[in-house]
């Protein structure tokens, strides 16, 4: 059986909030190392990969591999009943028909309990190769969101150029052009505002802004976001959580002109 308790329901609420517009039905794959999810969006352009490590739960117990087939819209409805600060426990039998969710308030003695029906989801898993990216850019997640939403007002796609001079996000649209350039920047007092650019070779890739703006719904999970680029491979956008847990998005680049 599975029993996994989060100290803060907000973690799961934010994760599900961040992916529910990209993915509708998906398996939460539970094993002794934690709960993982891998799913593509309907158009097979983007891939979501979530890992909530066992260490992110206290306690965590999972005796056998269990796939929890969930409809994320339904899960959202149930999670809406949890306060951000509530403790959240997920429970399921070894071959479950439903997922049991318990929300416990820390402030008072309120306990709420829900059972969510599960579904059989036949999901393809893709092998994601280990990649040495040519450029790895770490920046405030709010800054990345701002850049993507600002540029989306002008264009459907953004070109990201990473060079020794910095990283440039630029777009061309019917009403005109736009570009935002960031350089490495260290803020000693507020490290969450740092911009770090690691580069082994210059990169230039074009991506659909619609998807990037969608990924930015995960900004609530982490002050910083890491974006990794190599020519002609999918972009990786990573929101790191505590205990090596993470939410990653991969996006196929646009090809040609």
């Amino acid at each position: 059986m599975l029993e996994a308790k989060l100290d803060q329901a907000s973690i799961l609420k934010k994760v599900v909030d961040a992916i529910k517009d990209l993915v509708q039905d998906c398996n939460f794959d539970c094993n002794d190392s934690g709960i993982a999810l891998q799913a593509m969006d309907n158009s097979h352009v983007a891939l979501v990969s979530m890992a909530l490590k066992a260490e992110s739960f206290q306690p965590y117990r999972c005796d056998r591999n269990i796939a929890l087939g969930l409809n994320l819209t339904s899960l959202t409805k149930v999670l809406r009943a949890a306060q951000n600060e509530d403790m959240l426990t997920l429970r399921a039998e070894d071959a479950p028909d439903s997922l049991n969710l318990v929300f416990e308030s820390k402030a008072d003695d309120r306990i709420s309990e829900y059972d969510l029906k599960l579904m059989d989801i036949d999901q393809e898993h893709l092998g994601i190769p280990e990649t040495e990216y040519a450029a790895t850019i770490t920046l405030p997640s709010s800054e990345f969101r701002r850049i993507c939403t600002d540029l989306m007002a002008l264009s459907e796609s953004v070109t990201i150029d990473a060079s020794k001079d910095g990283v440039k996000f630029s777009c061309t649209g019917d009403i005109g052009n736009g570009a935002v350039t960031l350089r490495s920047h260290t803020n000693v007092d507020k490290p969450e505002l740092n911009v770090d650019i690691e580069l082994s070779e210059p990169v230039s890739l074009t991506f659909s802004l619609k998807y990037l703006v969608n990924f930015c719904k995960a900004s609530a999970l982490s002050h910083q976001v890491k974006i990794c680029l190599s020519n002609e491979v999918p972009l990786l956008v990573e929101y790191a959580l505590e205990n090596q847990s993470h939410l990653r998005f991969y996006l196929a680049p646009k090809i040609g002109d």
């Binding site: 158009s43 097979h44 893709l126 092998g127 061309t172 074009t206 999918p234 680049p253 090809i255």
Partner: peptide
């Protein structure tokens, strides 16, 4: 501008 590639052309099925 540019055609959208599929993620499946980069990552293979397990």
């Amino acid at each position: 501008k540019g055609s959208q590639g599929s993620i499946m052309s980069f990552f293979s099925k397990k």
